[in-house]
Amino acid sequence: MAFSDEETLSNWSAADIEARAHRILLERLKPLVVLLPTRADRWTDLLPAVRLHEAAVSVAPTSGTSWPDTRIRFGWPPTEFVGRHAARHADSLLATALRWTFERLAEVRASATAVYPEADAAIRQQIDAACRAASRQPLASVPPIRPGRHDLMAIRRAGTPWGIVSEIINDLALLDAHPYVLATELLAPDDGIRWRLFHLGVLGEVLQAARQLGYQVRSCGPVRPGGRRPSFVLSDADGGTVDLWFEASGIWPAMGLRSPYAEATSGIALKERMLGADLLLRRSDGAFLVVECKYSSNPDFVARNGYYQAVTYAAELASRTHSHVTAIAVGPEGVVSRAGFTDLNVGRIGICQPSAIREVMRLFLAQPHSTAISSAAGKRFQTLGD
């Protein structure tokens, strides 16, 4: 289910790309940042001090007074005295490296939360403490300097938590690399993200099908859940457009409507939420195609949960927009051996495999610009189901 984006138009801004890279990087940093102190004053205690002797002028002699220098500068008898006194300062390497780390960490957090406000939820206390420490002495008066390779080795030898800090610095250095480097490093398919990769694979099948059917694909920005704008716009040669939403709960406020789910659950003491299909396509005439992704080797899970969600999304959209809705659940090849569809009052409901998406897209995009599916299109859906 690969999707090549070489022919996809894109109007991503530099800020969009940077925000996505920062979002990925913040996820990578979480296991390290969560181990850092949650109090700003703890960083002051952790910074080792060095004892330095500095030149100073005083109004009275001290044990460190230099009488020759005093006589040269102030004559005899002198009115002021030149000497040296001991002063304690934070270790220069650790302080400048820590200031750089805290500033870059705050930058990554600000950019990532602009895309997803809860991106820092698990490490908010640690980053807040770091930001407060950076604004206080001794860090406030030192310049932020990114340490080099040999400096990192010295930082690691300073003990706890400096080994963790050096690892964070090493990861933050990825900010100087191309943003795609971050994405590539985090896309190794493990059990925790396979469902998400299936979701993205189905998105790729939908976009590939649109291109093969003669539609031009334009990316509207980073793919993000619950956004208030479509992730892609599909355009045909006649000027018709189809908006494609990713995790489409944001379509309700975009249409100026309140989610039926939010209305039904308003009596429960929970933050208002909106249900959103994994993928949702809306034609310029108002017709909808809902695509729900169900990644599981369990046929019962794909069938039952997929059907429940497809019907729910179809019912919500049809009841509020009075448009025609086609809603499908997509399960893995082999788990779903062939497509099946049924007609309900709320629209056309089906379960299919990824290889059937192109035909589903062809029928959806070929529907006449009306609120009801034509009999001919209905027969073709039935043929797909058979």
Rank of each mutant, 00 (worst) to 15 (best):
S13R: 15
I17N: 01
L32I: 03
L46T: 10
A49F: 14
E54A: 15
G64A: 12
P68N: 07
R73M: 14
P77L: 13
T79P: 06
R84F: 09
T96M: 15
A97W: 01
W100T: 00
E103F: 05
R109F: 00
A110L: 12
A121S: 14
R124E: 11
I127N: 04
R136M: 13
Q137C: 05
R146H: 09
G148L: 04
H150T: 15
A154Y: 07
L174K: 05
L182M: 10
A183D: 05
W195R: 15
R196P: 03
H199N: 13
L200R: 08
V202C: 14
A210C: 02
Q216M: 09
G227C: 08
G240S: 15
A254Y: 03
R258I: 15
I268R: 09
A269T: 12
G286T: 05
A287Y: 00
V290H: 03
S296A: 15
S297Y: 06
R304G: 00
Y308T: 10
A315V: 04
A315Y: 06
A318V: 01
A329S: 15
V335G: 01
G340N: 12
R348N: 05
I351W: 09
Q353N: 08
R358M: 03
L363D: 00
A366F: 03
S370Q: 14
A376N: 06
R380G: 03
D386K: 08
